[in-house]
Protein backbone atom coordinates (compact mmCIF):
# COMPACT_ATOMS: atom_id res chain seq x y z
CA UNK A 1 0.00 0.00 0.00
CA UNK A 2 1.40 3.44 -0.82
CA UNK A 3 1.74 6.03 1.91
CA UNK A 4 -0.98 8.07 0.28
CA UNK A 5 -3.50 5.27 0.18
CA UNK A 6 -2.60 4.36 3.74
CA UNK A 7 -3.42 7.90 4.84
CA UNK A 8 -6.71 7.80 2.94
CA UNK A 9 -7.51 4.54 4.70
CA UNK A 10 -6.72 6.03 8.11
CA UNK A 11 -8.97 8.96 7.32
CA UNK A 12 -11.88 6.75 6.27
CA UNK A 13 -11.44 4.65 9.38
CA UNK A 14 -11.49 7.70 11.64
CA UNK A 15 -14.44 9.23 9.85
CA UNK A 16 -16.29 6.05 10.77
CA UNK A 17 -15.16 6.45 14.38
CA UNK A 18 -16.25 10.11 14.36
CA UNK A 19 -19.71 9.20 13.05
CA UNK A 20 -20.09 6.67 15.86
CA UNK A 21 -18.92 9.22 18.42
CA UNK A 22 -21.34 11.77 16.93
CA UNK A 23 -24.20 9.32 17.20
CA UNK A 24 -23.21 8.72 20.81
CA UNK A 25 -23.37 12.47 21.50
CA UNK A 26 -26.71 12.72 19.74
CA UNK A 27 -28.02 9.82 21.82
CA UNK A 28 -26.82 11.55 24.97
CA UNK A 29 -28.63 14.75 23.93
CA UNK A 30 -31.81 12.75 23.40
CA UNK A 31 -31.40 11.08 26.78
CA UNK A 32 -30.95 14.45 28.55
CA UNK A 33 -33.93 15.89 26.67
CA UNK A 34 -36.13 12.99 27.67
CA UNK A 35 -35.09 13.48 31.29
CA UNK A 36 -36.07 17.17 31.14
CA UNK A 37 -39.49 16.19 29.82
CA UNK A 38 -39.88 13.47 32.44
CA UNK A 39 -39.03 15.96 35.18
CA UNK A 40 -41.91 18.17 34.04
CA UNK A 41 -44.27 15.32 34.77
CA UNK A 42 -42.67 14.62 38.12
CA UNK A 43 -40.27 11.78 37.52
CA UNK A 44 -36.69 11.35 36.30
CA UNK A 45 -34.12 8.78 35.20
CA UNK A 46 -31.64 10.15 37.72
CA UNK A 47 -27.95 10.17 36.90
CA UNK A 48 -28.15 11.91 33.49
CA UNK A 49 -25.38 14.16 34.75
CA UNK A 50 -23.11 11.32 35.59
CA UNK A 51 -23.73 9.60 32.28
CA UNK A 52 -23.20 12.83 30.30
CA UNK A 53 -19.80 13.14 31.97
CA UNK A 54 -18.77 9.66 30.88
CA UNK A 55 -20.03 10.28 27.33
CA UNK A 56 -18.01 13.48 27.21
CA UNK A 57 -14.80 11.79 28.38
CA UNK A 58 -15.12 8.92 25.91
CA UNK A 59 -16.25 11.12 23.00
CA UNK A 60 -13.34 13.48 23.61
CA UNK A 61 -10.68 10.79 23.59
CA UNK A 62 -12.04 8.91 20.56
CA UNK A 63 -12.52 12.11 18.56
CA UNK A 64 -8.88 13.19 18.96
CA UNK A 65 -7.46 11.09 16.10
CA UNK A 66 -10.18 12.20 13.69
CA UNK A 67 -9.48 15.83 14.53
CA UNK A 68 -5.77 15.21 13.94
CA UNK A 69 -6.36 13.84 10.44
CA UNK A 70 -8.75 16.69 9.65
CA UNK A 71 -5.96 19.10 10.71
CA UNK A 72 -8.29 20.38 13.40
CA UNK A 73 -5.90 20.75 16.34
CA UNK A 74 -5.06 24.45 16.43
CA UNK A 75 -1.53 25.38 15.39
CA UNK A 76 -0.06 28.85 15.11
CA UNK A 77 1.51 29.20 11.67
CA UNK A 78 3.17 32.60 11.92
CA UNK A 79 6.64 31.42 11.07
CA UNK A 80 5.54 28.41 9.10
CA UNK A 81 3.72 30.28 6.33
CA UNK A 82 6.87 32.28 5.61
CA UNK A 83 8.92 29.21 4.75
CA UNK A 84 9.27 27.47 1.39
CA UNK A 85 7.45 24.15 1.01
CA UNK A 86 10.53 22.16 2.06
CA UNK A 87 10.80 24.11 5.31
CA UNK A 88 7.08 23.80 5.95
CA UNK A 89 7.28 20.06 5.50
CA UNK A 90 10.16 19.88 7.98
CA UNK A 91 8.18 21.88 10.56
CA UNK A 92 5.11 19.74 10.04
CA UNK A 93 7.09 16.54 10.53
CA UNK A 94 8.77 17.91 13.64
CA UNK A 95 5.47 19.05 15.11
CA UNK A 96 3.89 15.69 14.30
CA UNK A 97 6.76 13.86 15.99
CA UNK A 98 6.38 15.94 19.16
CA UNK A 99 2.64 15.34 19.13
CA UNK A 100 3.07 11.58 18.76
CA UNK A 101 5.55 11.45 21.65
CA UNK A 102 3.38 13.56 23.96
CA UNK A 103 0.18 11.69 23.14
CA UNK A 104 1.92 8.37 23.76
CA UNK A 105 3.01 9.69 27.14
CA UNK A 106 -0.58 10.76 27.90
CA UNK A 107 -1.97 7.34 26.98
CA UNK A 108 0.78 5.74 29.10
CA UNK A 109 -0.11 7.92 32.09
CA UNK A 110 -3.82 7.20 31.70
CA UNK A 111 -3.26 3.49 32.36
CA UNK A 112 -2.58 3.89 36.12
CA UNK A 113 -5.98 5.59 36.47
CA UNK A 114 -7.74 2.51 35.15
CA UNK A 115 -5.36 0.19 37.02
CA UNK A 116 -6.18 1.97 40.27
CA UNK A 117 -9.92 1.67 39.66
CA UNK A 118 -9.53 -2.03 38.86
CA UNK A 119 -7.43 -2.68 41.95
CA UNK A 120 -9.87 -0.91 44.28
CA UNK A 121 -12.97 -2.09 42.42
CA UNK A 122 -13.88 1.61 42.42
CA UNK A 123 -17.47 2.63 41.84
CA UNK A 124 -18.70 6.18 41.22
CA UNK A 125 -19.53 8.21 44.32
CA UNK A 126 -23.20 8.35 43.25
CA UNK A 127 -26.39 6.36 43.74
CA UNK A 128 -25.73 4.62 40.38
CA UNK A 129 -22.46 3.17 41.71
CA UNK A 130 -21.13 2.84 38.16
CA UNK A 131 -17.99 0.68 38.19
CA UNK A 132 -15.38 3.18 37.03
CA UNK A 133 -13.46 0.56 35.04
CA UNK A 134 -16.43 0.19 32.68
CA UNK A 135 -16.15 3.79 31.58
CA UNK A 136 -12.42 4.29 32.00
CA UNK A 137 -11.58 1.37 29.72
CA UNK A 138 -13.16 2.86 26.57
CA UNK A 139 -11.76 6.26 27.58
CA UNK A 140 -8.22 4.88 27.86
CA UNK A 141 -8.56 2.98 24.57
CA UNK A 142 -9.47 6.27 22.87
CA UNK A 143 -6.17 7.80 23.95
CA UNK A 144 -4.27 4.68 22.89
CA UNK A 145 -5.99 4.90 19.52
CA UNK A 146 -4.97 8.57 19.23
CA UNK A 147 -1.34 7.60 19.95
CA UNK A 148 -1.37 4.78 17.39
CA UNK A 149 -2.92 6.96 14.68
CA UNK A 150 -0.38 9.72 15.42
CA UNK A 151 2.58 7.39 14.85
CA UNK A 152 1.00 5.89 11.74
CA UNK A 153 0.34 9.34 10.29
CA UNK A 154 3.85 10.52 11.11
CA UNK A 155 5.30 7.47 9.44
CA UNK A 156 3.24 7.86 6.24
CA UNK A 157 3.89 11.59 6.05
CA UNK A 158 7.62 11.04 6.52
CA UNK A 159 7.63 8.76 3.49
CA UNK A 160 5.87 11.45 1.45
CA UNK A 161 8.38 14.08 2.54
CA UNK A 162 11.35 11.84 1.78
CA UNK A 163 9.93 11.31 -1.70
CA UNK A 164 9.71 15.09 -2.08
CA UNK A 165 5.92 15.05 -2.39
CA UNK A 166 5.45 18.17 -0.26
CA UNK A 167 1.93 18.97 -1.47
CA UNK A 168 0.69 15.60 -0.37
CA UNK A 169 2.45 15.77 3.00
CA UNK A 170 1.01 19.22 3.54
CA UNK A 171 -2.46 17.85 2.90
CA UNK A 172 -1.81 15.14 5.49
CA UNK A 173 -0.10 17.03 8.30
CA UNK A 174 -0.21 20.73 7.34
CA UNK A 175 -1.52 23.51 9.56
CA UNK A 176 -5.05 24.13 8.35
CA UNK A 177 -7.57 22.24 6.33
CA UNK A 178 -8.72 24.21 3.33
CA UNK A 179 -10.75 26.93 5.02
CA UNK A 180 -13.42 24.71 6.32
CA UNK A 181 -15.36 25.75 9.37
CA UNK A 182 -12.92 26.05 12.20
CA UNK A 183 -14.20 25.83 15.75
Amino acid sequence: MTAERFLAFLRRLNTGVAILVGIGLLGCAAFVLLDIVLRQVGTSFGGTDEISGYVMAVATSWGMAFTLLELGHVRIDLLRTRLPSRGRAAMDLFSMLILAVVVTLIAWQCWPVLANSLRNGSTANTPLETPLAWVQTPWLLGWVWFALVSWATLFAAAILVLRGEFDKSEAAIGAFAETETLQ
Binding site: I19, L25, G63, T181
Partner: peptide, 17 residues
Protein backbone atom coordinates in the same frame (compact mmCIF):
# COMPACT_ATOMS: atom_id res chain seq x y z
CA UNK B 1 -23.14 12.99 8.75
CA UNK B 2 -21.25 16.24 8.15
CA UNK B 3 -22.86 17.89 11.18
CA UNK B 4 -21.87 15.02 13.45
CA UNK B 5 -18.28 14.71 12.25
CA UNK B 6 -17.92 18.49 12.31
CA UNK B 7 -19.07 18.46 15.93
CA UNK B 8 -16.61 15.73 16.90
CA UNK B 9 -13.75 17.57 15.23
CA UNK B 10 -14.41 20.85 17.00
CA UNK B 11 -15.11 19.22 20.37
CA UNK B 12 -11.86 17.32 20.43
CA UNK B 13 -9.99 20.39 19.25
CA UNK B 14 -11.36 22.43 22.16
CA UNK B 15 -10.91 19.62 24.66
CA UNK B 16 -7.24 18.99 23.86
CA UNK B 17 -6.63 22.62 24.81
Amino acid sequence: RDSLTGTVKITSMIMLV
